[in-house]
């Protein structure tokens, strides 16, 4: 395979990284809000959150992407396919992260929360300063593997016409008749990004050791 082809793949993987990164950030933020909703005693908050998580974890991402991509224009939102793709990935990963974080929030020791309560924290201060950091740290390994999962799943946005890594490999494969080389190279690039993310995850874990050896 020529360098030109490989460079085209590398360039396209930039879009893969960008799409995944945005989806991961939106997904984590939204996931945090949704998991807080799931744990709320208020049924008006917890029910929709639960349905959200159940739906987006229960439907194949491919179907979600097709649905969002085709539904948005019907709702009068003519957005570029990249936006639909990012929206789909974000919603899906938010559901998974919400479920992960829910477990983390439930594992925050009660006494630590009581101590903050005694110190006069208001509920939202307690949430952001105490509950979130501890739940985040407790669930970090699961959060990182979900982030890697979404990187791999981002290959599915190729079906709604976003020319990221997989779509680029597909286009080049059909024009050069070298599918073996191109898909293997694409796979290699995914692997490389994957390792990079895993490395970042380990770095983050080390930073959040909080004094533990």
């Amino acid at each position: 395979m020529s360098w030109t082809l490989f460079l085209l793949l590398v360039k396209a993987s930039g879009l893969t990284v960008a799409i995944s990164a945005i989806a991961i950030v939106i997904g984590l933020t939204l996931g945090m809000v949704v998991s807080a909703g799931m744990l709320s005693p208020n049924l008006l908050l917890s029910m929709p959150s639960r349905v959200f998580v159940s739906f987006f974890r229960g439907v194949p991402l491919l179907v979600q992407l097709l649905l969002i991509y085709n539904l948005l224009p019907l709702l009068g939102l003519n957005v570029p396919s990249v936006v639909a793709a990012v929206a789909g990935l974000s919603l899906c990963t938010a559901a998974y992260q919400a479920e992960n974080l829910r477990g983390g929030f439930l594992s925050v020791p009660r006494g630590v929360v009581e101590a903050a309560d005694m110190a006069g924290f208001r509920p939202f201060q307690l949430f952001w300063r105490i509950r979130v950091p501890i739940a985040f740290k407790l669930t970090l390994p699961a959060l990182v593997s979900e982030a890697i999962m979404i990187l791999k799943s981002s290959s599915l946005v190729s079906v709604v016409g976003v020319v990221e890594l997989t779509r680029m490999a597909q286009d080049l494969a059909s024009s050069t008749y070298k599918p073996l080389d191109l898909y293997a190279a694409a796979g290699g690039l995914y692997l490389a990004i994957n390792w990079l993310m895993a490395g970042l995850g380990r770095l983050l874990e080390r930073r959040l050791r909080w004094g533990r050896a």
Partner: peptide
């Protein structure tokens, strides 16, 4: 059980509420 906040240093534990509250 002390209930110190594990993600803050000793100083952080003592100063946190002074700052946020």
């Amino acid at each position: 059980h002390f209930n110190l906040w594990p993600h803050m240093t000793a100083l952080g534990n003592v100063s946190e509420a002074l700052k946020t509250v």
